[in-house]
Amino acid sequence: MSAAISNHNRFHPLKFALWLGIASMIMLFAALTSAYIIRKAQGNWVDFRMPALFWFNTIVIVVSSITMNWTLRSFKRFKVNACKIALAITLLLGVVFLIGQYFGWQALNEMGIYINGNPSGSFVYVISGVHAAHIVGGLIIMLIILLKMSTTPFNPNRLIRVELMSTYWHFVDVLWIYLFIFFQINIF
């Protein structure tokens, strides 16, 4: 063993890479929301209320973060079944969130706020749509991990995957909360 070990091991490189990725995703949404602010300041802006359904979706995604945390804790304690159940519930909640967002867009449509109408509405559709794409990415990773867990024997060495997935999921959850508050403040 070279002495190199003592110099490193501070932080797993993949975790570090994920945080860098998160930094770049933050920049993407910062760009989109600041574009919103700049555009709003120029007038010709239609005000409307966010449909109530989005409150429900927000609660769903927050709960999914809690169940994701449950997944990670069970994994660390080698509680295989609890872990699978928790992950399945998280996955399900993620899907419910996506469906909820879809009906949220339907509700916007019924209010007369169209994606190709005034930019105030377009921004909500596009920004929440880009966020939904990030949710889809997270769900695909979750599905892969869940299938792997169900088909292969429990392997504690896979902890890093679960940790990465959990960090990402909390991030997209917090991201939605930010976007939701942003829309509430700006549109109201």
């Binding site: 949404f29 760009a31 989109l32 574009a35 994606i115 190709n116 005034n118």
Partner: peptide
């Protein structure tokens, strides 16, 4: 982000 808004302007008919 700029490209995404541009793509929507070109395809869906948004007015960013």
């Amino acid at each position: 982000g700029a490209a995404i808004l541009l793509i929507f302007d070109r395809t869906i008919g948004t007015s960013f």
